[in-house]
Amino acid sequence: MQIKVRKPLIVAFCCNWCSYAGADLAGSNRLNYPADVKIIRVPCSCRVNPTFVLRAFQRGADGVIICGCHPGDCHYTSGNYYTRRRMTLLFSMLDYLGIERERTRVEWVSAAEGAKFAATMNEFAEQVAALGENRRLEDLRCKK
């Protein structure tokens, strides 16, 4: 009998100008990171509306990570500063509602940090895998 090991599904929102290019660099440098990290490209990290994060969980994500330019380096000058405040409040609220805090993260990754991108994803995937499937913020109607 074969036992199916469930791998965690991770949604990574990556800003076009830094982190997405960082992911690209990780790829062209042949660095490994889990295939279950699904990247969604956004124009800037502050494009990520709190609903996007919740929707990702609804549609089956076990962890959500938002990657943007380092503070001070945002292509639009200040987008990531707003991201920082917003996501702090959102993640804190999720924690308050009893949803495991380790399922969410914000990380700053520049276009030159391919290695950091791969390392972050590996580490985050491991952390989420340890928590198991997302049960507390799941939508049964979206489960196959």
Partner: peptide
């Protein structure tokens, strides 16, 4: 609708 450069990252803040 404001920010400060000194704000903490979400993980540190929480």
């Amino acid at each position: 609708v404001d920010y400060s450069r000194a704000d903490l990252d979400p993980s540190e803040a929480i």
